[in-house]
Design a protein around this nucleic acid. Sequence first.
DNA 1: ACCGGTCGGATTGTATACAATATTGTGTCC
DNA 2: GGACACAATATTGTATACAATCCGACCGGT
Lengths: 235, 235
Amino acid sequence: MTKNPTGASAVLRDGPRFESVEAALSVAIHEHRLTPGTKLGEDEIGEIFGVSRTIVRAALQSLSHSQLVDMRRNRGAFVAQPSLTEAREVFEARELLEPRMARSAAAFAKPADVARLRRHINDEHAALDAADPGRALRLSGMFHIEIARIADQATIAGFIETLIARSSLIIALYWRRQSALCESFAHHALVEAIATGDGPRAEDLMRSHLVDLHSALDLRDRTTAPRSLRDALRR
Amino acid sequence: MTKNPTGASAVLRDGPRFESVEAALSVAIHEHRLTPGTKLGEDEIGEIFGVSRTIVRAALQSLSHSQLVDMRRNRGAFVAQPSLTEAREVFEARELLEPRMARSAAAFAKPADVARLRRHINDEHAALDAADPGRALRLSGMFHIEIARIADQATIAGFIETLIARSSLIIALYWRRQSALCESFAHHALVEAIATGDGPRAEDLMRSHLVDLHSALDLRDRTTAPRSLRDALRR
DNA sequence: ACCGGTCGGATTGTATACAATATTGTGTCC
DNA sequence: GGACACAATATTGTATACAATCCGACCGGT
């Protein structure tokens, strides 16, 4: 098992450190190829990547700390399933942090930064054209993280990174079909505001962008998700 | 080594899960008994707590994710040493998040919550009277976290928890002696504002409390705080 | 047939063994 | 005497072995 059977782990480049496995799992979750609730068996993952459970375990623990994965003692690791409450909290946090970051980004952005943002948007479009909505979603998340990075706030950027990750899970769980315009316009406008150094406008655009996103989710407290069998079966 | 030599690990109650080791190390760091830069050898820690390196490793990894510990490949784990830049970022983030949390806490606080906050302050005073400033500092941090919890924002409370942790390291590195009144008054006023449901006042008090704290640090860009031996010993 | 308990397989939790790497000490050459 | 090369040691990185726990199937009783 220690050998690397037929390129099963082509993703792993130099050293099979646990970060590689973590990144691969993280990307799969962000792209909705691993959906909330999926069991992540240690042996299985280890076999896929050609590493021992030691490595897999470290990767899962790290993902668990980012709340992408839920580890239950003696039960195993599962892709996390944020509750409605958590979903609302995540978006409240984003609405608190990200507009401020957008404003700072507009103040600090250098030409190279703007270019990078534009490239992100291009990649997003390309992914949509290639009928790869998972990849588009992941890139869209990276766009938001990039803005926090440009604002020169690595600490907050880290927070936003975990919020984006959980947002991906929330979208997987609570997205409502009908709204499909999917933000590429919003991102474009945001870049323009940042490019021209218009901080207040960038802040507003980010805020309304997040509100749009938030309202494209179905976070009503529907008592689906039956709280008790008695309630669920009383007909 | 698997046996438990002479109660060295009295801290560990039921199962020697890695969380116990993590908590013990975390408390020691918060109380400044482990200072920034200290090497955290895996064997040594394992021997102290009577667990194997597997457990220690998991604990260190978790602490590393909280940025209390810096793990360098093939080098080992060290208590983190936040740079001046990181220090400034941490306080900017706190000044963005915590006043908002204080306002929400004032809106949501139930009598039991207020009682818990008062108890925290009492414990803080007791620790100071007992000439245990480390414990007082740790309790002071828990006070801030508790406010975010009362605001019913578990996600943001988690962020603040890591910010508090890093603040503790920052205080260890950059605290300037002269300012010593050490916040107990500020906390008291804050609790009163929260108890009376005065959100705006709580927000203001928190903001100025953080500004006070921030300005009690010496975050000037002096090249002191010897980042490297080269700098430290060039005379 | 249904309910309960018990046994077996599978999976996770932990410890240990081995390999890889960095650091320190020593010796030799200039 | 000092600088470099090399060997010894210590520490971390990874894999594997073993123990503990859980889940499901089987089976006997009612």
